[in-house]
Design a binder for these strands. Sequence first.
DNA 1: TTTATTGTTGACGTAACGTCATTTAAAACT
DNA 2: AGTTTTAAATGACGTTACGTCAACAATAAA
Lengths: 249, 249
Amino acid sequence: MSPRYIDDATREAREEEMMQAALNIIARDGVSGLTIDKVVTLVPYSKGTVYNTFSCKEDLLTALCNRSVTRLSDIFFRAASFDGNSREKMLAIGIGYMLHSQLNPTEFMMVISAKTPSVTEKSSQKRQEEHKELETQLLGKLLGIISEGLATGDLNLAPHLSPAQVAFSLWAMSFGTIALLQENVERCGVRQQMSLENELLNHANLVLDGHQWKPYTPDHDWHASVQRMKETVFAKEVEALESQWTELA
Amino acid sequence: MSPRYIDDATREAREEEMMQAALNIIARDGVSGLTIDKVVTLVPYSKGTVYNTFSCKEDLLTALCNRSVTRLSDIFFRAASFDGNSREKMLAIGIGYMLHSQLNPTEFMMVISAKTPSVTEKSSQKRQEEHKELETQLLGKLLGIISEGLATGDLNLAPHLSPAQVAFSLWAMSFGTIALLQENVERCGVRQQMSLENELLNHANLVLDGHQWKPYTPDHDWHASVQRMKETVFAKEVEALESQWTELA
DNA sequence: TTTATTGTTGACGTAACGTCATTTAAAACT
DNA sequence: AGTTTTAAATGACGTTACGTCAACAATAAA
């Protein structure tokens, strides 16, 4: 008296299959062009099964967002393994975040979309908790680097700030900078000429100097550090970005 | 041989009427619950007329966003008129931005929504240009304060930074901080205990110290400045926020 | 083989979208 | 006053997407 069970592996494989289909649709029709019906036609499962996996379109979007954050986790891991001082590692987090967002603009914007009321209002509880969990993991990576900075004496925590606040400051700054510069790549405006990489470096230096995290901006060639990151831990991302560029040309 | 024309005043009044209806719907059903059909029933105009005013739901959202930014403009104006030194005025911009976002969380999130691909992909060209224009106006207010700081000698521009970059750094930081803290007001997580006002003040000080904008953080009681702002130029907003609070209790 | 239970299916009712042929009415001209 | 002209308003309609659910399929224990 027992039914057939589906094992977790195939269930996840199916989930991945649907998400990939969704990404293809988004790449072609944009986020607004994503519909469950289109996913159903691209996938060897019925509407019922798709709805059994994702409670609604918004839930699917949140899942895609979580998938993206998971990948970001790997980038942060590599950032933390950069061969350099603690401040360079912290900067590497920001640069990695930027590279990831440039490489997957859709996915980055989806993280914004996923924080939007129209999505959170409808997405499933389970997947939203998963999202929170993933963000906590990311912050954990930052906290590790902060501990290292404290241990080596590069960073002296201001009395009114906790490590979590230091982590959050860099995150908020990176997020804001990327979010605001991401859009208008080719639209003109006050921010038109600013290069994302430059601004991010400037802002990160402002914040890290503010935290008195040594070495200070004038005492170090930060552009060289960024260059080295791009050649080592983020070589993969840089190459992918460049091949994306030549593809367009 | 001429038809009836509608003058701009009534046209705008009608637009406002529809937007107000939309805000009521959003307040009740959330952003995802907004539909053009609902707007039509709440308004003494037909579907055709509504679609004649807003090309689609996303266009309406962008319009609501622009309306919000216009109001923000007034707040920035008052921030710039704060009786204090240039750095206090700059801080006032950030605090005003925060108060505005707390007072109108829906509208703030709509600004995020409006930057989301699913909206920009469908919104009308005209309204998106209007949005860009409004943002430029806001940045202009910041640039005015920066000029003042340069004139009084409080601010010494780093050689590699332009005034626009200084303005942008504060904006990105404020936006990122508010956006990330806005959501989880009652959700638990790493950031749960952080108060938005405190974090914003911390981050603003980090950035402004980074720009070497005098007086430096240790040389001034910034909490007192914030208090004074809330009692003078932002008294209106603080009162509204407090009455909102007692309403809930 | 039977049975209990999970998993799958796609047709269907509902709802929102966006359009467009038709109607309305103000102003200009006679 | 009547006619004409044409912007503006209307709402019915075709289309598309949503999300559900009754029926069916498949599996493994009894």
